[in-house]
């Protein structure tokens, strides 16, 4: 995994979440097996299992006995809502802090955002 400093199971969990949000992993479809995930990301299978179990606990994935792990129906909506809740803290706060450091007012920052998004 690219970030050597954060727990790998969290990073793998985020990747899977992003794939669900982007629709690459469709609801009610199977995700790769633990062994496939471990081999692909070159991580310990126990770590891959931990990532997947966390998503199962959160209701994002569900287990079909003897078949594998599947994306839960409604998982995409649930994840989008979760990510919207953490958006401000993760993205706006650092933006404001950096702006403040170099003397940009909130109004100026908003103007810049509007200009860039057109």
């Amino acid at each position: 995994m690219e970030d050597a400093n954060r727990p790998i199971f969290l990073q793998l969990g985020e990747r899977l979440e992003n794939e669900i949000i982007s629709g690459q992993l469709a609801e009610d479809s199977a995700i790769p097996s633990i062994n496939e995930l471990a081999a692909f990301y070159r991580i310990n299978p126990a770590t891959a299992l931990k990532a997947v179990n966390l998503l199962v606990e959160n209701g994002i994935l569900y287990k079909k006995r003897g078949i594998g792990m599947f994306v839960a129906v409604g998982a995409r909506k649930q994840l989008i809502e979760m990510h919207q809740k953490t958006f401000a803290g993760e993205f706006i706060d650092p933006l404001l802090a950096e702006g403040k450091k170099i003397g940009l007012s909130v109004v100026e920052i908003i103007q810049m955002i509007e200009k860039r998004s057109n």
């Binding site: 633990i34 062994n35 471990a38 081999a39 070159r42 299978p45």
Partner: peptide, 11 residues
């Protein structure tokens, strides 16, 4: 080595 190890360890 890592790839073969992981694949075989999983099995």
């Amino acid at each position: 080595f890592y790839d073969r190890l992981l694949a075989d360890y999983a099995e």
